[in-house]
Design a protein around this nucleic acid. Structure first.
Lengths: 259, 259
DNA sequence: TCACCCACTTGATGTAAGTCAATTACCGAC
DNA sequence: GTCGGTAATTGACTTACATCAAGTGGGTGA
């Protein structure tokens, strides 16, 4: 996501280690002590940032490493035989990509930068080996994978049972809470996905996304200007998304009944 | 799935160890040597079989163990605030349940037996500990989780982009190939899910499932009698599902162009 | 054996979202 | 600045699937 307060990329950032990283407790090092973080740092490679539109990897390539987003954002998508694309992930700073490639050592999807994006590369063999010796790391890896499974299932539920408004609301609410976790504004942000991408991700057409945005705007729930979004009534948006009770996770929840 | 050649449950089965289990190379022990399988066996508990309709765990319960299906089948589903159910998994013999609960130690879904089902219980703390000492087990766990992530993403693609016929065809083809892996017939089987459950799983109504089955039947692709299904033209079903090129995995593929 | 229930089927009708098409608003190239 | 291309909006029309409704048939229990 391009954010309200974007951080200029400094050359020094390329040398930054996990222990100094602000994403510390969202990413792999969560729960590790200083010594173990140092060991993790030793296997992690910092890459030069990807420009918008550059590929991190492509579907079919051999899997060698996981990647953690440091800044910027990445989308992943797969293609079927007919060549239709399906976006299946949007990765923000602190999130890990490539987990779906471990099982057969080939990437089932392609990953592309949505804006200038810097990443950490984590060679998988080394990570696997290291996690054998650091129980906390081992556990954290399981947690991350488990979370990915659970969140895919939430998305599935969305697709199977929700209408266009509910889907878009859920998408925005989810994004909002992830941005908040990263200390960005949860009510004002720039979408890094186009309407077309959002539609694809949610199983809707671009026209439907556009109309739904217009509708939300006319109801006073949010304001948009192209990729800029300002949420005016987050609580109502949550209730449309069917996530009103979800406040517990990340939010002071004024009152579930105050729709 | 209730299968064409069901295996009567013997009391002795309760004592069976991984090393004698026919599901050996679909399940956790894949890639382990005899000694390591013995160690795995020590932590695994065999439970008395669940009867149809009995719960293995319920949404919200504390997570303590993973479960492997030995025979029978299990469905998992979650509920949203409105109380709508969404089925998110169908587990066949050799498959592992509960992976989505690791990250916050609470089951996000409920698991219920679709028929008489026997299971192995694998206490997670012990498994995690053991996998620290057995690299092959460690790796296999990652592979299984990764596979689950990848298959959820395939299902997502299905939901987002496919129509009713394509979804049902994909469901049947997927089931067929999983049954084949387990040495059951891939063209003749009993569904353990009702039409209603299949509809829920695929994001369609029971009426649409029923009509689509009728349509497939009138096209000569399959025959059904309630839960019994006999596939007459698996190749065509695959091409409807948009999976014709998928033959490589599990099938002699006569010719991709022979629609 | 009958009666009831439940799962499923089939048909008629309604509707949310897709498709097609026309316009407008930006953005980058020159 | 102007031009051309792409992204987004908006409206008119179509359609796939949902909903509503009326059967059918197998299985179970008295």
């Amino acid at each position: 996501m391009a954010l309200i307060s974007p951080q200029p990329i400094k050359l020094s950032a390329l040398k930054t280690a996990c222990k100094n990283c602000k994403l510390h407790d969202l990413c792999l090092p969560l729960g590790l002590d200083t010594l173990d973080i140092d060991r993790l740092d030793e296997i992690i490679k910092r890459r030069k940032p990807l420009q918008k539109g550059e590929y991190l990897f492509r579907s079919g390539e051999v899997f060698t490493a996981l990647y953690a987003v440091r800044s910027g954002s990445i989308k992943t998508y797969s293609e079927n035989e007919q060549g239709d694309e399906q976006i299946n992930g949007l990765y923000l700073p602190g999130e890990l990509l490539g987990l779906d490639a471990i099982h057969d050592e080939v990437h089932p999807c392609s990953a592309i930068a949505l804006e200038t994006t810097s990443l950490c590369e984590i060679p998988f063999i080394a990570l696997e080996d290291l996690s054998q010796h650091i129980p906390g790391l081992h556990h954290q890896l399981f947690r991350i994978m488990s979370k990915e499974i659970a969140s895919d299932q939430t998305l599935l539920m969305l697709m199977a049972q929700k209408n266009a408004e509910e889907r878009l609301a859920a998408f925005l609410v989810n994004l909002s809470s992830r941005l908040k976790q990263r200390n960005f504004s949860d009510i004002e942000f720039f979408l890094s996905l186009s309407r077309k991408d959002i539609g694809n991700y949610l199983g809707l057409t671009i026209e439907t996304i556009s109309r739904t945005f217009s509708h939300f705007q006319s109801k006073g729930l949010l304001e948009t200007d192209r990729k800029y979004v300002k949420i005016l009534d987050l609580h109502k948006l949550k209730s449309i998304a069917g996530l009103a009770s979800d406040c517990s996770q990340d939010e002071q929840c004024p009152s579930k009944t105050a729709s």
